[in-house]
Design a protein around this nucleic acid. Structure first.
Lengths: 228, 228
DNA sequence: ACGGTATTTATTGTATACATTTAGAGCATC
DNA sequence: GATGCTCTAAATGTATACAATAAATACCGT
């Protein structure tokens, strides 16, 4: 995507994630054009891409609406993520290059530094390093299709909300998982990497449910992750 | 997508699948506009959507190019499909409504009719009914995210090529799987449905490899499906 | 003849004007 | 008062003109 389109994409996405554009709200092209300082054409490009990434839903001849994430969908997404990212870890154990492993290690070390200051813990920094770790692992899996599917599927707002409700012990455990998965990759042990990654996602889902309540459906989804 | 955009999408997609636009070729917006009889604007919309569906790749300021499917990618996709469509079957066993089950049964019956005329077997008809069956199952899973992820991931050209190389016994076995999965859904047995679906995809992958050759990598992918 | 630079040209990116569609207000009719 | 119609306004869909970009070409100097 080019300059204006990218600018529009970033700006609209940011406002959706920040809650400035609430779920279900109608995004009008002309208003967005004013806000972003570009014409309607790149706005439309951006909206199409946001739709492909599930941030919005476009109804022909009616307009673009910010997606709603129901509890059911979020549960489904955690299960899908456990499956796909687990498989990515398995592939990465076979295909990862040194450079990618180094990038993952760098992210782990950065998080360790942050963990060293528990009183003024930098959640934003954790969020960024965590993302860097997972992106590197997806790249290491060596399947563009899998990587982009995962990136689209894993809604950053959900990750964000999960991280926000992490307690200190959750951050510690999360990075312990990161180190463990990295070791599994270095050993070339795909089964280990996959199992550890599933555990990692499952732990995140546990925190999410603890913070935002659990339904029968989410109970079922938790079982689904276990019995994949 | 609206009228002109949809028309452009269908036309360009058709030409890609038919080989009229070969892999790697550069699709120029103005030419496509002439071919489709619409202006560049809906052409651009269509290209963006084709990119989201992995049919083409857009390089900013350079243009749109028809995607290449490497053997590795195809293997990866079969594994992903076994995983995701297996999970869809598991969900469908819990959530499927009578209407969706009826749709699936209708597709099975239609294929049975086709199978009754082995001398003049209608592969196109099988292809269409097979698609109807799988779409109904994805809908029955009740997760929009999962359904659209699958639809994007499963390249119809790959399915097409696979079906083309089916022998009569492969068609028979394929529909036997369809009936078995349907029964599992009716019994509400998610584990059965999932296992049967994975077997179904695995059989298709076997035919594909038999027809188009197998590499070390595809051997590994076949094992991956088994040990999911 | 060779290398480097300016120019041209083809293609994509952006803005804007116009067409189409849809929802809703207002009014007439039953 | 409810129903259904027409008209209007607001939003999206489409076409086209213009700008920016990048590659190819021609030109010039050495």
């Amino acid at each position: 995507m080019s300059k204006a389109s990218q600018k529009a994409y970033d700006e609209v996405r940011r406002r959706i994630l920040s809650g400035d554009f609430p779920e279900g709200s109608h995004l009008k092209e002309e208003e967005l054009a004013d806000i972003c300082g570009v014409s309607r054409t790149p706005i439309r490009d951006a909206l199409r891409k946001l739709a492909a990434d599930y941030y919005v839903r476009i109804v022909p001849n009616h307009g673009t609406f910010v997606s709603r994430w129901s509890g059911e969908e979020i549960s489904d997404i955690f299960v899908l993520r456990a499956m796909l990212e687990g498989y990515a870890a398995r592939l990465a154990a076979r295909r990862a290059k040194n450079q990618e492993l180094a990038e993952m290690q760098s992210a782990c070390e950065q998080i360790d530094v942050l963990l060293g200051k528990p009183n003024t813990f930098d959640k934003e920094g954790f969020f960024a390093a965590n993302k860097r770790y997972h992106m590197a692992l997806r790249a290491a899996a060596g399947s563009d299709r899998l990587a982009s599917t995962l990136t689209r599927l894993v809604e950053q707002p959900v990750v964000m909300r999960t991280v926000i409700s992490y307690a200190m012990e959750d951050f510690i455990r999360s990075n312990a998982h990161h180190w463990e998965i990295l070791e599994a990759l270095r050993e070339g042990d795909g089964a280990w990497a996959e199992a550890a990654m599933r555990g990692h996602i499952h732990a995140a889902y546990h925190v999410y449910r603890r913070a935002y309540g659990l339904s029968d459906h989410s109970e079922q989804a938790a079982k689904d992750i276990l019995t994949l």
